[in-house]
Simulated assay, not measured.
Amino acid sequence: MAASDIHSLGGLLRTWRERLHPADVGLESVGHRRAKGLRREELALLAGVSVDYVMRLEQGRSVTPSPQVVSALARALQLDRTETELLYRSANQLPPGPGKVSDHIPPGVQRMIARMADLPLAAFAADWTLLSSTPLWCALFATPSATDLPGQNLIVATFVDGTTARVATPHGGAEVFERAMVADLRRSAARLGDDPRFRSLVTTVRAKSPRFAELWDEGRAATHRSLVKTVHHALVGDITLNCDVVTVPDSDVKLVVYTAPTGSADAEKLDFLRVGAVRADIPARADSPAEG
């Protein structure tokens, strides 16, 4: 590879693709691999784009992918903040600055998600847009992955679509969950309130949901932490789980994980879904929420 090509968009994509192993991103290594790193089709799968598009980017036949595609590629390649900024600039795009909702998932968090596939685990942006999830998360909530259906937002699912109430019941009532979500979003508004994406979300949901508007106007701000929920599943019935929320240090990313006590009937139901997730026997419903 020529020195000048190393710093081109295509050269960077090839370099970063070749340094990852399928196991690093939660994929199985299938068949004989003549080249090191991820295959183009694996990167395409992870980023939610076509193989042909990845090829055109690497060959320099396409040099200005959209910010959404750049963000998806950065996540798929597990780039850190510096590398992500370089990718944006190589694609002739401005990287997200301070005060903007970021879809960047730190590489360490991406490795956690890839290696903790035995848990229902998902990562959300500060505005509660789903960024990534494990197969068991998708099986538990019968919902597509963020790659299959990008833009899933838990605030919209809760207050506009009303799908979260049909999927899970928080102990203490729906009001507990609703207040936790709005208070967490209010907390993020202190840093992100001027971001057009964030403002658009709040304005849209306020206009469509009197309940959201009521809670938003209360002005309560707090970190969303832990709840107990009963998930209503078509195959295993009701399953009661602990839901814990952790904000990643030096990041706006929120990790949400569901667990059941060891040896409990709920743990057995989760094990059943785990097997189904591995075998991909449980179809996803496009109208299901990204539960949190």
Results as ranks from 00 to 15, higher is better:
Ile113Tyr: 09
Leu140Asp: 04
Leu27Ile: 01
Ala234Ile: 15
Glu58Pro: 02
Leu57Ala: 03
Ala189His: 14
Glu291Phe: 10
Glu41Lys: 03
Leu192Arg: 08
Asp195Cys: 12
Leu154Phe: 12
Asp148Thr: 11
Thr143Pro: 11
Arg19Thr: 00
Ser132Glu: 15
Phe198Lys: 05
Ala139Tyr: 06
Ser264His: 02
Leu131Ala: 10
Val176Asp: 06
Val231Ala: 05
Ala126Gln: 04
Asp252Leu: 13
Ser90Trp: 08
Tyr258Ile: 05
Asp244Ala: 08
Val160Pro: 06
Arg34Tyr: 04
Arg115Met: 09
Val49Leu: 06
Thr64Ile: 10
Leu79Lys: 13
Glu28Asp: 01
Asp148Pro: 00
Val25Ile: 03
Thr129Arg: 12
Pro95Met: 10
Thr129Ile: 08
Gly99Lys: 06
Gly162Arg: 01
Ser132His: 15
Arg34Cys: 03
Thr223Ala: 15
Asp148His: 03
Ser66Val: 14
His171Trp: 04
Pro261Met: 01
Gly10Ser: 00
Pro249Ala: 13
Ala74Lys: 12
Ala165Tyr: 01
Thr84Ser: 13
Lys100Gln: 15
Glu268Ala: 07
Ala35Glu: 03
Leu227Asp: 14
Ala74Gln: 12
Leu13Ala: 01
Gly172Asp: 05
Ala117His: 04
Leu87Ser: 14
Phe124Pro: 14
Leu201Ala: 09
Ala47His: 11
His7Leu: 05
Glu58Ile: 03
Phe272Ala: 12
Tyr88Ala: 14
Gly31Trp: 11
Val278Ile: 07
Thr230His: 04
Ala126Thr: 06
Leu46Gln: 13
Val156Gln: 02
Ala76Thr: 14
Ala222Pro: 12
Leu235Tyr: 15
Ala180Asn: 11
Leu43Lys: 04
Leu119Asp: 01
Leu154Ser: 14
Arg115Trp: 11
Leu154Lys: 05
Arg40Ala: 00
Thr163Gly: 03
Ala190Asn: 08
Ala265Gln: 06
Asp195Ala: 07
Thr64Tyr: 10
Val109Gly: 05
Phe272Thr: 15
Pro135Met: 07
Ile155Gly: 05
Ser226His: 10
Lys208Leu: 14
Gln152Ser: 04
Ser8Phe: 04
Ala125Met: 10
Ala277Thr: 11
Pro150Glu: 08
Leu43Ala: 03
Ser200Arg: 07
Ala122Asp: 13
Pro96Cys: 11
Gly108Tyr: 04
Asp161Glu: 05
Leu73Gly: 15
Ala91Asn: 13
Ala122Pro: 13
Val30Asp: 01
Thr158His: 07
Met55Cys: 01
Gly173His: 07
Phe198Ala: 05
His224Met: 14
Arg34Asn: 01
Glu58His: 00
Leu185Met: 10
Gln78Pro: 02
Gly151Glu: 02
Gly219Gln: 15
Val160Thr: 02
Gly193Val: 13
Arg33Leu: 02
Arg61Glu: 02
Glu83Phe: 03
Glu85Cys: 10
Leu121Phe: 12
